[in-house]
Computed example of a mutant assay.
Amino acid sequence: MKSFASSGTMQIVNKSEFSKLQLQYPILEEQQKIGTFFQQLDDLITLHQRKLSDVKKLKAGLLQKMFPKNGETVPEVRFPEFTNAWEQRKLGDLYKKNLERNKDQFKADKTISIASMRFKPEGNGASESSLSTYKVLREGDIAFEGHKSKQFSFGRFVVNDIGNGIMSPRFTTLRPSQQIPIKFWKQYINYEPIMKYPIVNSTKLGTMMNELVMNDFLKQTILVPSIAEQEIIGSFFKQLDNLITLHQRKLEHLQQQKKALLQQMFI
């Protein structure tokens, strides 16, 4: 196709040139069998895409029902053993500014990507000498990412649930004042309808992204359930996340399998 295409902004192959193309293809019976095989594979891929989409929609709906709506003190859906209203808490009672610096505790392979909350074994390009200036992000700590997106209009918080590591000093981080259920706070502190109000009231527009004003943030309040309820809500959403990951991996495996088979079953 490239050899026959005309040059220009939009490459075009006319009918007469197209008719000259030489193609290799199998007999009709083999075409039918190959086509049926890939149709079945496509149907399986579509099935897992729908399963993944359904579980993601289920999680989104449950987040809305299991966290209180604006102006309410209890969520719409609760586990039956919990009936008390959620308590209004100042964020300064729950978190404190994280000032811990690396000081050669961790090497570049423990650099954490805040966007994906994953370790980057190759580091992020920083020199070894600069790693001592990096912030230590321990499990349970939260980091503020001020980039706006369709899902997070004002920036977002992410919880470190992967283990101790280091991160760029340009991000603001906080540490829990006491031991709290990480599984719950991973969902809650990252939930836009809850956190947009504290974030809007405590950020300023920066050159590249919104900047968190720590003193203002720690004065903000949010509703918090008992530790016992945090534990059970966190475990519930962890199971949903595991199911989402399972479907995601199955889908990616099937897509990779199809790609490999296309290469092997076509000349």
Rank of each mutant, 00 (worst) to 15 (best):
A5T: 02
N14A: 03
K15W: 15
F18T: 08
P26C: 10
P26H: 13
I27G: 02
Q40K: 13
D42F: 09
D43R: 11
L58D: 02
G61V: 02
L63F: 08
Q64E: 14
P68H: 08
P68I: 01
E72L: 12
V74R: 09
E76L: 13
T83I: 06
W86G: 00
E87L: 07
Q88V: 09
R89C: 10
K90E: 14
L91Q: 09
K97D: 11
N98L: 07
S113F: 09
M117D: 02
S127I: 01
Y134H: 06
V136H: 00
R138V: 01
R138L: 09
A143N: 04
A143I: 08
F144E: 07
E145P: 03
G146M: 11
H147Q: 10
Q151R: 14
Q151V: 15
F152L: 00
F157W: 12
N160M: 08
G163H: 11
I166N: 02
M167C: 15
P169I: 05
Q178K: 15
F184T: 00
K186Y: 11
Y188H: 12
E192F: 14
M195E: 08
Y197C: 00
E211Y: 07
E211V: 09
V213Y: 07
I222R: 10
I222G: 07
V224F: 04
S226C: 03
Q230S: 05
G234R: 08
S235Q: 15
F237M: 11
K238C: 06
N242I: 03
N242R: 13
I244R: 08
H247Y: 15
K250D: 12
H253Y: 11
L254C: 01
Q257P: 00
L262N: 05
Q264L: 10
F266M: 08
